[in-house]
């Protein structure tokens, strides 16, 4: 797998923008997805589903609440991809 953390961030940011209509400048790694970006729970589900489809990884219902920041989401994707590959 050649995808860098930077690549993953770019794709996650694009997904967040697509789902929420937010601008790229509003998304940053340290921001809390629900509190800072003000994303409602169903939009968060949609981001999760889009991430699962894009990266072929799973985010279980138990894992979802532990993902708070954009960075947490990227960490999860990296770990899940490493475990898969």
């Amino acid at each position: 797998m050649t995808e860098t953390r930077e690549d993953i961030y770019g794709e996650v940011s694009a997904i967040i923008q697509e789902v929420t209509g937010m601008q790229a400048a509003d998304v940053s790694p340290k921001k809390s997805i629900v509190d800072d970006l003000d994303i409602d729970s169903l939009s968060m589900v949609e981001i999760g589903v889009a991430v699962e489809d894009k990266f072929a990884v799973e985010i279980t219902d138990a894992e979802m609440p532990k993902i708070v920041t954009v960075e947490d989401l990227i960490d999860h994707i990296e770990q899940a991809m490493a475990a898969r590959d």
Binding site: S43, E46, V49, D53
Partner: peptide, 11 residues
């Protein structure tokens, strides 16, 4: 309320 979410799930 999110049609786009359901459309993703349909896939």
């Amino acid at each position: 309320p999110r049609v786009s979410l359901v459309e993703r799930l349909v896939r």
